[in-house]
Design a protein around this nucleic acid. Sequence first.
RNA 1: CGGGGCGUAGCACAGCCUGGUAGUGCGCACGGUUUGGGACCGUGAGGUCGCAAGUUCGAAUCUUGCCGCCCCGACCA
Length: 490
Amino acid sequence: MSKGLPKRSENYSEWYNEIVKRAELAENSAVRGCMVIKPYGFAIWEKMQRALDDMFKETGHQNAYFPLFVPKSFLEKEEEHASGFAKECAVVTHYRLKTNPNGKGLIVDENAKLEEELIVRPTSEAVIWNAYKGWIQSWRDLPLLINQWANVVRWEMRTRIFLRTTEFLWQEGHTAHATKDEAVEETNKMLGVYATFAEEWMALPVIKGAKTENERFAGAEDTLCIEGLMQDGKALQCGTSHFLGQNFAKSFDVQFVNKENQLEYVWGTSWGVSTRLMGALIMAHSDDQGLVLPPKLAPIQVVIVPIYRAEEDLAKITKRIEPVVKELKSKGISVKYDDDDKYKPGYKFAEYELRGVPVRLGIGMRDLENGTIEVARRDTLSKEPRSIEGIVEYIETLLDKIQSNIYQKAFKFREENTFKVDTWEEFQTQIETGGFILAHWDGTSETEEKIKAETKATIRCIPFDEEKESGNCVYTGEPSKQRVVFARAY
RNA sequence: CGGGGCGUAGCACAGCCUGGUAGUGCGCACGGUUUGGGACCGUGAGGUCGCAAGUUCGAAUCUUGCCGCCCCGACCA
């Protein structure tokens, strides 16, 4: 195995691909555009799932599961939705194979053609709203707050591991409400959940905002999003929350009887985050030594590497360290004592760095004599000897410190790469160096498209937390009420 | 779908121009010495050279066709 990773500064996408492979997060599979998520990568995803799932439950949602297949007629019902997804759908047309009568192999049995094609879900609004029709009769059935963890398929032209794969894993929340206000509130609330998750768990600062009409989800009245900034200066959409209005309720005829005994269409929302977050996690924090994981999402938070020559020395080290391991575990810290004799310490150090383990402890005979242990931090790549007394408490606070340091670093990076731009010349120059550009926009799709055609920059969102400030569109000079966020994006 | 690159051992690649015994490094197996930042020595295993056809006494190498992968763009979470 060649040792160093490619440098981020030299070839960012190669660095990204290598880190995914070498840290054993995932690999490209034999199936074009689809990935194999390996155990270490999946362990991170499981931690994300757990944290998010807990947050969904806390906000009153329940999990359920809906079918993989969507009858074409369901998908067609909401027109915008249908045309939005039409060009990226996998279609099932037959239900049987047979052995090739002309020789070896299997062929599609033409006699087993489906009467109606089934679409492999690109998202589940259609199946779910079809089911909701049967679930909702009265205002007493509302709100209906459902989430599902599932895989979806979108036949993208070009794929990139974790960031855009043909099949990906995600969670999709689908809720139904009696009033518009309640649905809008739900849309906002879940965007807030995503932002909290991104910032507190992934240590990734995000901008909350609304998508422009061009970037809106097919079938939604309003699409909200969180946008993160990656180390190469490109933006990555990390989560979306849609206010669906009554679009799906009308298309699937989901009505309820209100307290006044009148029939009304329900109001809907849907929201999701996907395995793309794995890509965000990698690209936001990692360095040229490998992955850097925030402690809250690290499958292994602390690794302990014994350094010894003789078997007896290992036994002594093990005896000394065992109570520490036990105590760390009792505090809920995931710790690995790596006494594997097949690899040398130096190899292990490099390996755990590559895998982003936040804290590494090294302990050898010298430490046993001195009552010390070496503490190495992944985020700063620094190390120092500490007294082994009180080490557990020290590590507990250190993990918190690392979590917030990683966030602060990402936050600082974003601050340094966010620019207010007021002239078109400046815009064109700045977009080349990357980052978020805050600029005025006249609010028209035409301008948005022209800017995209000329610079490849898109409006990532109309931010919620930026102060409202009037000005003139950076492209047309027309009046504008507030700055929007431009960037080149993944 | 356009533009570029590449398919040779598990991985990374050389060999191809100029046809003639299939190689190197890493990894793997075994033995020994090692172990505080990716150890070293020795021995060994491992290949229908992407697939198919053609040219030739002879093809990894030349020709044609096909397949696959990666990167850059258009599309997108």
